[in-house]
Design a protein around this nucleic acid. Structure first.
Length: 362
DNA sequence: AACTGTCTCAACCGCATCCTT
DNA sequence: TAAGGATGCGGTTGAGACAGT
């Protein structure tokens, strides 16, 4: 016997919401809150909708101070960096972007950001598809540009002009040293104290990972690289995060790449960890083109591998040991300035990481 | 003008987790 | 402590818009 349905499926309306329904729901919630019970809410206000549907409509569309579309370069960077760090935990990512919903970010990632990455790898059976994506990107960039983001268009044009020409890096060669990021990064103010272990623990806990002090083991001095963000460094921390095997895989891959300074494919790594590699990322960054995918991030100014080895340290291959996939030790490229970025907006590190609250929760 | 392919995004679905009793 | 219900979340879908042929 399966779970009881949350509502009478036969008696609820599905599909797009009408303005009348929106108005009903919005005015009720603004006056009374949800009453702490989404399931009962539609009956209270005479809507023939499932409670879950009401909740979704409110959270994704009716809630005040929401922004739709027009993602800035800064937001792109945050989304990408968080995706790299924690995987597809959209609600966590959304919590870092005030006014954005997890659904919006998820859609944006799936339709735009991921394609930015894929664009260079995807076989283009027809020219048209490529043209469309370029056209779309230019159109988006134009829109962003008109919103005051002047960096977008030039970047997209540059990308589109090189997308057909840029060779994929052959396997097993050293990655070329990339120039410093072209796009200025948003995280420029270094907040105090965020590098300390307590702050990092808090961040990781807030991000939803279980934390084990036993496993926590900053390994900066065990790594053979250093990332730079426009002059600042992104330290790699080894942390204990559960529940996200995909993020673990992603992070581990980057560790692998980072450790060796060259790309050697993901297959052996995948096999070594039970083959539990997240399909989406695998698809997104095919092993043969992995370095190229990373290059996108370089271009975006997300990460910058610096050739300067003044901080070179040693690293052993088993830094990221795993016990099982539910209790995974993973590595996160930790933007220590991320929280301080929100602090700069008058938000504490703790608060910056809180999810949105709603009337009944306030 | 009709057709076709692609893209976007709102909404649904089902599972996982949390909360209450 | 267990069971059942509510909520949260991420993956997926499908309708509509748009552009090329």
């Amino acid at each position: 016997m399966g779970r009881a349905p949350c509502c009478d499926k036969a008696n609820v309306k599905k599909g797009p919401w009408s303005p009348e329904e929106d108005a009903k729901l919005k005015s009720y919630i603004e006056k009374h809150g949800t009453g702490g019970n989404w399931i009962a809410l539609p009956q209270k206000i005479g809507l023939k909708r499932c409670g879950k549907s009401c909740r979704l409509r409110w959270l994704n569309y009716l809630r005040p101070n929401l922004r739709h579309g027009g993602f800035s370069e800064e937001e792109d960077n945050i989304i990408c960096s968080l995706y790299i760090s924690i995987g597809s935990r959209w609600s966590v990512i959304a919590a870092q972007l005030p006014g954005r919903t997890d659904n919006d970010i998820k859609n944006y990632w799936n339709t735009r950001l991921k394609k930015k990455l894929l664009g260079k790898h995807r076989r283009e059976p027809r020219n048209r598809g490529n043209y469309n994506s370029v056209r779309q990107e230019i159109s988006d960039a134009n829109r962003r540009s008109s919103d005051g983001d002047s960096s977008s268009l030039s970047m997209v044009q540059e990308n589109s002009s090189t997308s057909q020409q840029q060779p994929c890096w052959p396997q097993n060669i050293n990655m070329p040293v990339l120039p410093p990021p072209v796009v200025p990064l948003p995280y420029t103010d270094q907040g105090p104290g965020f590098n300390d272990q307590d702050s990092i623990k808090k961040l990781l806990i807030k991000l939803g990972g279980r934390f084990s002090g036993d496993y926590y083991q900053p390994t900066l001095d065990g790594l053979n690289l250093q990332f730079s963000l426009e002059g600042q460094q992104v330290y790699q921390e080894q942390v204990h995060v559960g529940s996200s095997s995909s993020s673990a895989c992603i992070a581990n891959n980057e560790v692998r790449f980072a450790q060796t300074g060259q790309y050697s494919g993901v297959d052996d790594l995948v096999q070594g960890q039970g083959g539990n590699f997240t399909p989406s990322f695998e698809e997104m960054v095919p092993s043969s083109n992995y370095s190229d995918g990373l290059e996108f991030l370089y271009n975006e100014g997300m990460i910058h591998k610096i050739a300067d080895s003044t901080t070179t340290t040693t690293c052993h291959q088993n830094t990221t040991t795993t016990t099982d996939w539910g209790e995974t030790t993973t590595s996160i490229y930790h933007h220590h300035s991320l929280a301080s970025h929100f602090q700069g907006q008058g938000v504490t590190q703790e608060c910056a990481l809180q999810e949105f609250s709603y009337p009944e929760a306030q």
